[in-house]
Design a protein around this nucleic acid. Structure first.
Length: 787
RNA sequence: GCGCCAGUGGCGGAAUGGUAGACGCGCUGGUCUUAGGAACCAGUGGGCAACCGUGGGGGUUCGAGUCCCUCCUGGCGCACCA
């Protein structure tokens, strides 16, 4: 028996499922049911990504407790999922907020710490002022918090980090082996990891016993270096500039739009050019990133756009070291090196090689690889998360707890006021007597980023009752997840963190698994038309009615304007509630529509006509099987074999919209020819194929027709039946279609040509021109070329 | 700016280099009547036609929606990454 681990991204228990969940889980459910019919050992679990801020916010707003709020949401959403009749392994259910999940996460943290993959350091971090917590780099989008949209501030805090950078190279390289991942997601991850190769060059600081390390991808332009620029947070800035000045500079940077304007301050130190007898000025500049390389650059204005802008503004010399016209400056393309004693006449790649070798020989630099990827900051200053199992002593030292001291349970009795971390004020929980040292100690009050929770839940699903995080044998047997289905919004965050976790756990536990998700499928969003009144008020689609070609709002009769179809959102009032749809159209029609109108990886527009069409088809199928059997001369074996073949192929490719087309085609044919199969074996075959898609009605029909609810195995395909013996052969003249003829496969070219030449359409086309060539692609096409 | 993906009827979308538009929605005409959010039948890329049609222009090929070059448009992602 083959194992198939089919997983949909588990939901955050916000209260209600939405149509996006429905689409996601229906796609997964179709796969899971198909594989079960094939006789595979299917794992198809579901759980809850249950820690996180909305619970705290809701608790304050509704005067409840995050735990109560979360658990009641889970209860409600579970009952909604049950209504969708998903074939899930509910005995594997887990919720990350329960101690039988998160205590094992604390164990994993201890493992990571001992393996050197978790560490604590002071760091400049992204602070979300609205959520009052730190965010990882991945969670800051365009300078704003990914959840709140608030402008992120920079703060220095002592934080826990996971050493994801240790795996940068592997995370990058292994993307190549993920053949069943969308190229788009892989590209995004590659960009995020951001590998660049180049050199690190040492610049001596004149009349100081200190030096600068500068990373560059263009060591070939070193002779054109005319300035150095540092980030305001660079080590040497605090060494040579006093705090007041630093603050002033920071303020001046804060006042301008740093993306549009370049600003710099000349420092009173100078560097020596590594190859020339020349002094280079050092600036503090707003455009130097402090978290890339060492936060320092050398500027070669002639061949870099930023450096050029900066040099123009501050009258810094511009020295050409690659041959080009003055008007082309800054010239960033490949060219012949000039003004560079060691490199003149070389092209870019040769020059890079030569100069880097020279640096290494002279010990003034070396080859270097840089990644944009930073270590993952996992501390969050929030109550509703997994406690980090660490204690601090009064002298400022800390100790990571031992596994025997776990679990560190989250206290229930806290007072939440929305200001800061509630755990900080819980001295009864926070303050302990350390059993090892008998000293007073304080628990870590930061909790884990919830992305830590979701980085290993697919492992815990394998056995949610185990008294350790997971069982090695089971992991080796059942991972990776064969099909992982979810939204593309997790392309970087969750999917990169999970890949890191899998690799880290592999190394710690000596597992055989390199990648957590063998195949990734990203389903598209569901969109719906939006409507607004002339006063810019969003209104619900169901309030709108059409009269004489114009749209009006019910009750008020205001004129309504139709907007574009957009992602369903409460603020735009274009949301469709799953519960309502299930009630009005039924489970099968709802499932059907989820796969009908678009390929699953593209947007699906919600339309009333669409869901109604699905319902009509359901009714039609039902009626079809209830018609009494007719004797017929038709041989439907071939037709149905083809149907089985197509459905199988299309389920395996996630081309579920084509399954819908296959179903229509089949029933169109059967009804047109009035072939009613009722309780025959052929009916059985059809129903088995329909079962993954519309299980509810298939079960009922199966019961009616065969007096059983045991759906048979997926039919073996008889390949001989798929072979067509007659074909419609297209006939072309000069590559253009003239006609088609119906003929036996395996015709003899000369024979068939004789009859083709007699066809009026062909004769008219050829007239008395000479046939110079005939291209016969056997059983495919015949193309006659005349002069 | 860089990267990725896409552009096919009124709309959603099908097409291993070999009959473009499967299938659905919508629309048109008709049938039926238990007047329905129903069902059934016929039609539906453009053009009177020869023919023309897959964003535009080139190319490869007997043959291009599909491959190559180039441009345009749209979406997504990244973005002062040294």
């Amino acid at each position: 028996m083959q194992k198939k681990y089919i997983l949909e991204m588990f939901p955050y228990p916000s209260g209600n499922i939405h149509m996006g969940h429905v689409r996601n889980y229906v796609i997964g459910d179709i796969c899971a049911r198909y594989h079960k019919l094939k006789g595979d050992e299917v794992i198809h679990p579901m759980g809850w990504d249950a820690f996180g801020l909305p619970a705290e916010n809701a608790a304050i707003q509704f005067n409840t407790h995050p735990q109560d709020w979360t658990l009641s949401n889970i209860k409600n959403m579970k009952s909604q999922l049950k209504k969708l009749e998903l074939d899930l392994d509910w005995d594997k259910e887990l919720a990350t907020c329960k101690d039988n999940y998160y205590q094992y996460q604390q164990e994993l943290f201890i493992d990571l710490y001992e393996a050197g993959l978790a560490y604590k350091k002071d760091a400049v971090v992204n602070w979300d002022p609205e959520d009052q917590t730190v965010l990882a780099n991945e969670q800051v989008i365009d300078g704003k918090g990914w959840r709140t949209g608030a402008n992120v501030e920079q703060k220095v805090l002592s934080q826990w980090f996971f050493k994801i950078t240790n795996y940068a190279e592997e995370l990058l390289n292994d993307l190549d082996e993920l053949e069943l991942w969308p190229e788009k997601v892989k590209t995004m991850q590659r960009n995020w990891i951001g590998k660049s190769t180049g050199a690190e060059i040492k610049f001596k600081i004149l009349s100081q016993d200190d030096q600068l390390n500068i990373f560059t991808t263009r060591p070939d332009t070193i002779y054109g270096a005319t300035f150095i620029a540092l980030s305001i947070n660079h080590r040497l800035v605090s060494k040579f500039v006093n705090n007041k000045e630093i603050d002033d500079i920071k303020k001046s940077f804060a006042e301008i739009d740093n993306e549009k304007e370049k600003k710099g301050y000349l420092m009173n130190i100078k560097c020596k050019h590594p190859l020339l007898d020349k002094e280079i000025p050092v600036y503090i500049a707003n455009f130097v990133l402090d978290n890339y390389g060492e936060g320092a650059i050398f500027g070669c204005p002639a061949h870099d756009e930023r450096d050029y802008d900066f040099a123009k503004k501050y009258n810094i010399p511009i020295i050409k070291v690659i041959e080009c016209e003055d008007k082309d400056l800054p010239f960033t393309e490949d060219g012949v090196v000039i003004n560079s004693p060691l490199l003149n006449g070389l092209k870019k790649t040769e020059a890079i090689q030569k100069i880097t070798n020279y640096f290494e020989k002279k010990k003034i630099g070396n080859r270097s690889i840089n990644y944009k990827l930073r270590d993952w900051g996992v501390s969050r200053q929030r109550y509703w998360g997994c406690p980090i199992p660490v204690i601090y002593y009064e002298d400022g030292t800390f100790r990571v707890l031992e596994k025997s001291e776990l679990p560190v349970l989250l206290p229930y009795d806290v007072s939440l006021n929305g200001k800061g971390n509630a755990l900080l004020n819980q001295d009864s929980w926070r303050k302990i007597l350390c059993p090892k040292t008998n000293k007073i100690a304080f628990r870590e009050t930061d909790t884990f980023d919830t992305f830590v929770d979701s980085s290993w839940y697919y492992i815990r699903f394998l056995d949610n009752k185990l008294d350790k995080p997971f069982d090695k044998k089971q992991v080796n047997k059942y991972l990776p997840v064969d099909k992982y289905i979810g939204g593309i919004e997790h392309a970087i965050l969750h999917l990169l963190y999970s890949r890191f976790f899998m690799k880290a756990l592999r190394d710690i536990y000596n597992l055989n698994i390199n990648e957590p998700f063998k195949q990734l499928f990203t389903q598209g969003m569901i969109t719906h038309k939006t409507y607004k009144t002339v006063n810019d008020e969003w209104i619900m689609p169901r309030e709108v009615y059409l009269n004489e070609g114009k749209l009006f709002r019910e009750k008020t009769n205001e004129i309504v304007m139709e907007g574009p179809s957009e992602k369903m959102s409460k603020s735009k009032k274009n949301v469709i509630e799953p519960d309502e749809i299930l009630e009005n159209y039924g489970i099968d029609a709802t499932r059907f529509f989820m796969i009908s109108d678009s390929p699953p990886d593209r947007e699906l527009e919600w339309t009333d006509e669409g869901i109604q069409g699905s319902k009509n088809l359901i009714r039609r199928i039902d009626k079809y099987f209830k018609k009494s059997r007719t004797d017929t001369k038709h041989d439907t074996n071939k037709m149905i074999e083809k149907f089985v073949f197509n459905i199988e192929k299309n389920i395996l490719n996630f081309s579920l919209n084509k399954c819908v087309a296959d179903i229509y085609t089949l029933f169109n044919y059967l009804e047109k020819e009035k072939i009613y199969l009722q309780n025959s074996d052929l009916s059985k075959k059809i129903l088995v194929c329909l079962y993954p898609i519309i299980p509810s009605m298939v079960l009922n029909l199966y019961m009616d027709l065969f007096n059983s609810k045991n759906i048979e195995k997926w039919p073996e395909i008889n390949k001989e039946l798929l072979i067509e013996t007659r074909i419609n052969l297209p006939i072309q003249v000069q590559g253009k279609l003239i006609t088609t003829i119906n003929t036996e496969k395996g015709y003899i070219e000369n024979e068939i040509l004789n009859s083709i030449y007699k066809l009026d359409k062909v004769k008219n086309k050829i007239q008395n021109r000479k046939v110079i060539k005939v291209i016969n692609v056997q059983d495919k096409i015949i193309n006659i070329i005349v002069d």
